[in-house]
Write a protein that binds this DNA or RNA. Structure first.
Length: 521
RNA sequence: GGCGCUAUCGUCUAGGGGUUAGGACGUGAGAUUCUCAAUCUUAAAACACGGGUUCGAUUCCCGUUAGCGCUACCA
């Protein structure tokens, strides 16, 4: 049995933390924030961050979620030191690294039975033969009398003979832990000392009664505690929905004589309506944030700020490395935080500006449409040109998925669609617009040179002088003729991009072609 | 109903027995631009309420209120 391991528990000073999700759905921001804080704490303390999969709920657990989960964690940049996915790929036995495995709860079932027997033998736990009906009745009575609804401890007082008789008679039983008279205390790094009265906890179930003669299934609170202890977890960092579970777990640590770890209960993330953030609030999974075009750097930065602040009270933008340096668990706020997309967007905009445009280009490549060859097939010149395009349009965008529509000013030239656009009607209907476009067509017809910003500027100046049209009336129709819409990037950069793009053999029309097709020369 | 956690601008937060209560997002205004953004400048905006303790509380204590969590032989 793992007793040798237990004896050495906590003897080393090394910090060991864990992220223990159940693979019953997509990783959402709340859990991701928990994972992040665990990871940051481990990295800052030079400790270990482990991943444990709590897949004992066979009905709801799915392996595809487990795979997705690991992918999401990796995307965020949160590498784990022990757990599934850390070993040699392809080999299920070598698939996890770490001395405290297995790291999937479903593979640890054999560990628990022996420990339960030990508790029973030491009289720290007892068999409870109460039927669900009995328990239900107790519960209702307690509610009626405004008392805490806890187990009466009836079976705790059974004599050894009575217990033996019932076992012999084949009565199903659950195993309960004996709670003593001592208050159940623990230290919470974000909330300070927390104490529960033992009466409020009562004797919790450790192992469920067996359905059909087989061994009963151990209960969640029991299993996490054992796993955490055997894995020598020193700091349990998790959601605050576990605060009420903690006294039970403390009692279990005590029963086994194991050292109680430090706890840090993180507040809930709320939606704008101040209700717990959920699918109802829209996309909240990490996968969906990635799809929407959020950069992992931005998401990590935002999640760090949601419940924590820098020491100087001012710094808002952090890289992962900077966070490792600055993050202190003691500075985590205990109060719940409302998730704010506006601030996330601002951070994402910032992250986009910090990122080389070639990397952004790679990320959005496929969304730019058929004119572009597959990323792998594209020439260096095409890559460089796409990066230039991204550099031009990316700084004004909140999310990556806004890039493709913006890129349409280069890729999506369609005169008929441009004319059909309602917001273009008024601009194109003006007399001045007709005159301006006629002048533009004139110049295109009589000058076949590649259109440089200088040439274009001289054209515009001439046209302004000739037509006496200026400002919006002058520029808007030209812009529509060239790009289909009346707003977009500055011409000085846009024009070279179009002209160079036209030479790439991607079927991107040059300025001349655009004007000719739009005005109909 | 019981037990627990929480409470500073709209939002995320800093602060802390005496402060002009600081920063950021968002919002308003201005600048800039052919345009929309972006960008820069600037403004408005907060200590939930009631009792204590104290010379003095937003800060410490106790209540109230509100929000949230747990209240299972779920995880």
């Amino acid at each position: 049995m793992p007793s040798t391991i237990i004896e050495t528990a906590m003897t080393s000073e090394e910090v060991r933390v864990r992220f223990a999700p159940s693979p019953t759905g997509l990783l959402h921001v709340g859990n991701a924030r928990t994972a992040l804080y665990n990871w940051l704490f481990a990295r800052r303390m030079g400790g270990k961050f482990l991943l444990r999969i709590e897949d004992t709920d066979v009905e709801r657990s799915e392996t595809r979620y487990e795979a997705q989960l690991m992918e999401d964690l990796q995307w965020l940049g949160l590498e784990w030191d022990e757990g599934p996915g850390t070993g040699r790929a392809g080999d299920p036995l070598e698939n996890e690294r770490g001395a405290y495995g297995p790291y999937r709860q479903s593979e640890r079932q054999s560990t628990y039975a022996g420990l339960t027997q030990k508790l029973l033998d030491e009289d720290k736990a007892y068999r409870c033969f109460c039927s669900p009906e009995d328990l239900m009745a107790e519960h209702h009575l307690a509610v009626q009398e405004h008392r805490p609804q806890v187990y009466s401890g009836r079976c705790r007082r059974l004599s050894r003979e009575e217990v033996e008789q019932r076992i012999a008679a084949g009565m199903p039983f659950a195993v309960r832990l004996k709670i003593g008279d001592e208050p159940l205390r623990f230290h919470d790094i974000v909330r300070g000392p927390v104490e529960f009265a033992p009466e409020a906890v009562s004797d919790p179930i450790l192992v469920r009664s067996a359905q059909n003669g087989g061994p009963g299934m151990p209960v969640y609170n029991y299993v996490v505690t054992i796993d955490d202890a055997l894995m020598q977890i020193t700091h349990v960092i998790r959601g605050d929905d576990h605060i009420s579970n903690t006294p039970k777990q403390v009692a279990i640590y005590r029963a086994f004589g194991w050292p109680v770890p430090e706890f840090a209960h993180l507040s809930t993330i709320l939606g704008a309506d101040r209700e717990r953030l959920s699918k109802r609030h829209g996309a909240t999974s990490i996968a969906s944030f990635r799809e929407m075009g959020y950069l992992p750097e931005a998401l990590v930065n935002y999640l760090a700020l949601l419940g924590w602040g820098a020491e100087d009270g001012k710094t808002e933008t952090f890289t992962l490395a900077e966070l490792v340096h600055a993050f202190k668990l003691e500075r985590v706020t205990p109060s719940p935080a409302v998730f704010d997309f506006d601030k996330l967007n601002w951070l994402n905009r910032h992250a986009i500006k910090q990122t080389p445009s070639s990397r952004i280009a790679d990320l959005v490549w496929a969304s730019f449409g058929e004119r572009l060859p597959a990323r792998a097939d594209a020439s260096e010149a095409v890559h460089a040109w796409v990066a230039r395009l991204v550099e031009l349009i990316a700084p004004s965008v909140d999310k990556l998925d806004e890039l493709a529509p913006k890129a349409a000013c280069v890729f999506g030239f369609d005169p008929d669609a441009a004319r059909a656009l309602p917001e273009n009607h008024a601009v194109l209907a003006a007399d001045s617009a007709r005159i301006v476009l006629a002048e533009l067509a004139d110049r295109v017809r009589t000058n076949s040179a590649k259109v440089t910003p200088e040439l274009f500027k001289s054209w515009m100046n001439e046209m302004k002088a000739v037509t006496k049209v200026k400002g919006k009336e002058l520029f808007h129709p030209v812009r529509i003729a060239l790009t289909g819409v009346h707003s977009g990037p500055e011409f000085d950069k846009l024009l070279p991009l179009i002209e160079d793009g036209a030479e790439l053999g991607l079927g991107i029309p040059c300025v001349h072609e655009r004007v000719e097709r739009f005005v109909g020369v």
